[in-house]
């Protein structure tokens, strides 16, 4: 070898560095947000004494079942039925363990609320806790991985905010008009947190900056568009609420999915 200084790495065999989560997991990260967010809305309605029919908790239940179905369908262990150990173990250090209990609890409580059985406010209070767990756990899952520089602790906030934005944005589209202000606030918060996330990477150590460059190289324009969609949507809420909600939901879905997909990279080097 002559000429320019070189550093070449080759392998016999290979480290297991390929992406381990694919589109079904990305879909789960969106569906769990929708399911958790709608369940939180049910909890809010139940606690505030607002009138609602069986349809809203039934919708939340259907979304939870759909989400769990996607998870089950994409799991390599689907025919081994090992998922029962999620509920036969005590693993409080695991975000997924909390998420499993959050989703299972939310499913039971939304079923009870849809059927009209038992104390509505009591179920609402419990649902507030379980649906919050379902919303919080994706951020916890990602932020726990110190070796993956794109999954920063800021995702602990970014994921639940964008999750709630997706759910309540869709609810606004379905006619829950009183959520307009909340959707606008969540969209602004999502865009601001996205900006803060990028600034945090840019101001971070070398590994974080390299990760930012990787994000930009892989999908920088799409991520910027996602943040822009969330930023612009509040301005359209009054005159074009459907367009605003669509923009906010699309931005949040895109931003979350990109962070899950591209964030799997280990670094540095990339």
């Amino acid at each position: 070898m002559t000429g320019a200084a070189a550093s070449i790495t080759t392998f016999y065999g290979a480290p297991n560095s390929a992406a381990f989560w694919h589109w079904p997991t990305l879909l789960h990260f969106v569906l769990v947000a929708v399911a958790g967010g709608v369940a939180l809305l049910v909890a809010y309605r139940a606690l505030s004494g607002a009138r609602f029919t069986w349809r809203l908790p039934a919708l939340a239940l259907a979304l939870i079942v759909l989400d769990l179905g996607v998870l089950w369908g994409e799991s390599l262990a689907r025919w081994r039925l090992t998922h029962v150990y999620l509920f036969l173990s005590f693993q409080p250090a695991s975000a997924i363990w909390w998420g499993a209990w959050g989703l299972a609890g939310s499913a039971a409580l939304t079923a009870l609320l849809a059927l009209g059985w038992g104390p509505r406010r009591g179920w609402g209070a419990l649902l507030l806790v379980t649906s919050s767990l379902a919303l919080l756990y994706p951020g916890l899952v990602l932020a726990a991985n110190a070796a993956r520089p794109l999954w920063t602790p800021l995702l602990l906030v970014f994921m639940p905010v964008t999750g709630l934005l997706i759910a309540w944005g869709l609810a606004l589209l379905l006619g829950q008009r009183d959520l307009g202000v909340a959707v606008g606030a969540l969209a602004l918060a999502g865009a601001a947190l996205g900006g803060l996330y990028l600034a945090g990477l840019a101001a971070g150590p070398g590994g974080a900056r390299a990760a930012l460059e990787h994000l930009w190289h892989e999908a920088g324009v799409w991520f910027a568009l996602a943040l822009a969609a969330m930023l612009v949507s509040p301005a359209l809420l009054r005159r074009y609420p459907a367009v605003a909600a669509l923009l906010a939901v699309a931005g949040a879905v895109l931003a979350r999915s990109l962070l899950v997909e591209i964030g799997q990279v280990m670094g540095p080097p990339f």
Binding site: N16, S75, A77, R78, T82, S94, L142, N145, A147
Partner: peptide, 26 residues
Amino acid sequence: AETCIACGACIAACPYDARYFDPRGF
């Protein structure tokens, strides 16, 4: 392997790329 649900959380957490999905479901 008997209690693994193949969720991939450990694969994500490993800084050394030392874990993988076994096609047998763990």
